[in-house]
Design a protein around this nucleic acid. Sequence first.
RNA 1: GGGCGCUUAGCGCAGCUGGUUUAGAGCAUCUGCCCUACAAGCAGAGGGUCGGCGGUUCGAAUCCGUCAGCGCCCACCA
Length: 897
Amino acid sequence: MIDAKYNPTEIEKKWYDYWLEKGLFHSEPDGREAYTIVIPPPNVTGVLHMGHVLNETIQDILVRRARLEGKNACWVPGTDHASIATEAKVIKRLKEQGINKSDLTREEFLKHAWAWTEEHGGIILKQLRKLGCSCDWDRTAFTMDDTRSKAVIRVFCDLYRKGLIYRGLRMVNWDPERQTALSDEEVIYHDEHSKFYYLRYKLAEPGVVNPATGAEYAVVATTRPETIFGDIAVCINPKEEKNQWLRGKHVIVPGVGRVIPIIEDRYVEIGFGTGCLKVTPAHDVNDYALGQKYDLRTIDIFTPDAHLNMDTVEPELQPNVRKYHGMDRFDCRKQIVEDLQALGLVEKIEDYDNKVGYSERTNVPIEPRLSLQWFIRMQHFADIALPPVMNDDIVFYPAKYKNTYKNWLENIKDWCISRQLWWGHRIPAYYDRALLEQTGLEDYPADKIIVSETAPEGDYVQDEGALDTWFSSWLWPVSLFDGIDRPGNSEISYYYPTADLVTGPDIIFFWVARMIMAGYEYTGKMPFRHVYFTGIVRDKLGRKMSKSLGNSPDPLDLIARYGADGVRMGILLSAPAGNDILYDDSLCEQGRNFCNKIWNCFRLVKGWEVSADNSAPLSGNTLAVSWFDALLDRTEDEVADLFAKYRLSDALMTIYKLFTDEFSSWYLEMIKPAYGQPVAADTFSATLAFFERMLRLLHPFMPFITEELWQNLATRREGESIMLADKDGKRTAKGRQKDGNESCLLAVDTLKAVVSGVRNIHASKNIPPKEVLTLCAAEGAFGEPAAQQLLVKLANVELAGEAGKEGNCATFIVGTTEYSVPLDRFINVDEELRKLEADLAHQEGFLRGVMAKLSNERFVQNAKPEVVELERKKQHDAEARIATLKENIAALQSRKA
RNA sequence: GGGCGCUUAGCGCAGCUGGUUUAGAGCAUCUGCCCUACAAGCAGAGGGUCGGCGGUUCGAAUCCGUCAGCGCCCACCA
């Protein structure tokens, strides 16, 4: 006896092991059409969260669907070394052991990092198996494994040779926590309530006063008073009237004593603040630009960890500035404001809202910092990556992200790819040791740098920097098939371009755009044909899931509670592409319930005794079978169409409704044999075939339960699986008989409406379900004998002609046909009249709407003929129904009298 | 400051190349049922003048304009 409830845990393990053991996920190039997905590699030390569940479920659905369609499906898994995040974790662990990173050599540190990677790496890939992901595990890759590393270094050298990579001293986003440069994309801006400090810069020239106020100082407004140590000028707009008196003068940096010139530039916005802008070229991007323009020197006042460094500030000016040495930038801000206030050099302090950039990884405010870094010239890449997306060679779902993409590419800036980290691909640039000692890094001549895949002979020093993680990620679809090192090899030629990329819109610039660039640069082809952008998983209150809020459920726990299939359905149900999904456990519950439903359908069908003789099935069964066959045809087409549009939630919902409503509630009830009776063999085998087709439809979404039931539906050979294509191609061989389909679909639609009408009477009159009612209608209203048979069975009625209408009747109309159920005992005439009158009012209102159109000459003239025709039909139908209703009302009223 | 998107039943959504019986499913809600597949279920019901206003049209949830609210992306106003 099969359990009344579906127990997923054991079944999931059983089939996943089976799939692995039979090598069913493994792909090798062959004659079939390839279908490839490369996984967005999760952080090697990461753990599965709800975002992954959404993402990986979608990919698995696409891969399994392709596999069922007979394509050679290959889903390549792997992990990302996540240089900054992983390095941070390793440093943290070392610290707990009492070891400072600075005490280690690069080699020692890397040993620890690899140990950590071995220890925690790949946990997430194991977790994906619990979800049912059908990755080709034999192909598991890592962004720092040999093949991928080689590709990265080769690409770096190649781009350097092409002049697309250069080294330069630039203002970059500096993360003081991790002490590394970041790319622009790694900076996240937050609105902040901060302060605007108005500082007094005394005039160096004696006797010069502000003609308007008589003050002997200029007022400069800043949000960052701690940077005054680096002030090198004050800039005014030459057109600003009120600051004319400052032209050509000099001011004294408050508390510092440095005398700096007033310079003039149109960059300063007239009317904003005081019109006086302090210029600190070492610590602000705009100031740096001004510094370049006017050839100002730079004074870097911060150490790499953003503490004050007074060694660079001329000590002879104000010996007391030494007290700020070593102070944290924010502590210093407080202190300097206090000190300046004491000196009477603060005019006022205002509240001010501005934006502050934070490091994406460490969540520490970014410090703009002048430093020597490696960059990629991006204009070339923007030029090759924009057209294919704009003209839909690569299709984005949803398409709105094309705009975002375009906007970014049209305003592209060079990509800072070097990081002051050890965990990652070391930059393959070498400096002659002797020369380097002479010149220092900054002044080392560019033409003496050797960029090479292998270390040059002689006494050379390798660049200390590592590459941005995304510099390896952008090669992923190519490097996974070794397409950088061995272009045109049999694998890359077969699997590339990949079919679909599934990822979040948050990494459209980090990753998607750059993969398109690298793809075209290194293969001449797109890396993928379609990009499916998922939404962000939020909790049901719309908050982003996060550890600190504690609103992120553990997917493994959910799988234990609802089953992997249940969780997959739950996460997918409300996840249309690009929309955020508001996750709630109840969604998984619905998934679990659906599994249970399928399970019980199976129990029912498998529990039937099959008629031994070849007795003909009941005519009702024959109708049921041809109806459901037609419905299944139609649904399969619909689902195919939805897949083509990447509307996976809708596809699943369509199958869900087919299974619960049409199959369980209608079809099975139609053919269900009476208690203790066998089912006809023909009907039974047709039903098993339907079951199989539905399991196949559903398999991409719910792989485990469908495999389990498919295996039990018939005797299967060892190694067979539902996940493989149906080699016999039953469905296509059978062909579609659309003509016959329409008529039986219509017949059953009517049947269902009549059954519902009767059930409605049963329910609304509180008639016990077992009571058999009499259903009266005009001749022909009950359809063919087959339909009548089903009507009797499903509605629990006996059929009678018009003549059967006796006494008070409950009535309903289907189409234009009236059906009556004589119900003297149960009828409340007044109530019935009210109901009929309400219906009449509704129909008359409807008719008025129709007539308004039809009596409008311009409608009849301008509208398409078929539209007019339809309105005429509406008119006739409504008139017929109104006539029927009026008759019934009159009859009831006369009875009442 | 630019750009994009959203606003349809209690909730999250579909419909939007204008016309398909005066707006659709799912979940939730309400009513009645433990009828030997399933109470993680069955049957039935209620619920929206499609954000406001204006326009185009014979006809608008669907096209245009405008206002309001929400969200996302980009941007060097200190």
